[in-house]
């Protein structure tokens, strides 16, 4: 196996284990965080805090590099503009997230756990992404 594929697989594996350990693969727990007016479960904030604490160090190091440790070009986002698609898209994402308690990562992990409902969500999500691509294609230029 190609080492780039192996590291991608292992990164995905650790990501998935992290979601399981943190409880975020469970939509009920995510909704417990999003329900500020109910009995509130602040866990998700600590998941973000733990992830960002490690991420800050890593992305600081990554920002100083020209190539990755495996010799790839560093593909870090460069855009800094705050545009309408960013804000409206993110607002829309929150609505979908709040509807079922699933975002893309946990859906994949729950799918691996054999949850039929996660499969349905994932197929719908892929369809939504395909709709986006079709809309992009119709745009002039």
């Amino acid at each position: 196996m190609n080492k780039h594929l192996l590291t991608a697989f292992i990164a995905g594996l650790i990501f998935g284990i992290g979601l399981l350990v943190s409880g975020m693969a469970n939509p009920e727990k995510v909704l417990g965080f999003l329900d500020l007016a109910g009995p509130w479960d602040p866990s998700l904030a600590l998941v973000m805090g733990g992830a960002v604490a490690v991420g800050l160090i890593a992305f600081n190091l990554a920002g100083k590099r020209q190539t990755s440790l495996l010799g790839d070009v560093m593909r870090l986002p460069t855009r800094q503009d705050i545009d309408k698609p960013l804000v409206l898209g993110s607002l829309g994402f929150g609505v979908g997230w709040g509807l079922a308690g699933f975002c893309p990562g946990p859906a994949l992990v729950a799918l691996g756990a054999g949850e039929l409902k996660a499969l349905v969500f994932t197929v719908a999500m892929l369809s939504g992404m395909a709709v986006y691509e079709l809309l992009q294609r119709q745009r002039p230029g």
Binding site: I14, G18, L19, V21, L46, V47, G55, M74
Partner: peptide, 22 residues
């Protein structure tokens, strides 16, 4: 467990950006 799981998610993102540049 949420803090620990979060740190694992951060570790995965760290490994991916440092090794694969993504």
């Amino acid at each position: 467990t949420s803090l620990l799981g979060g740190a694992l998610i951060g570790l995965a993102a760290a490994a991916f950006v440092l090794l694969n540049g993504r």
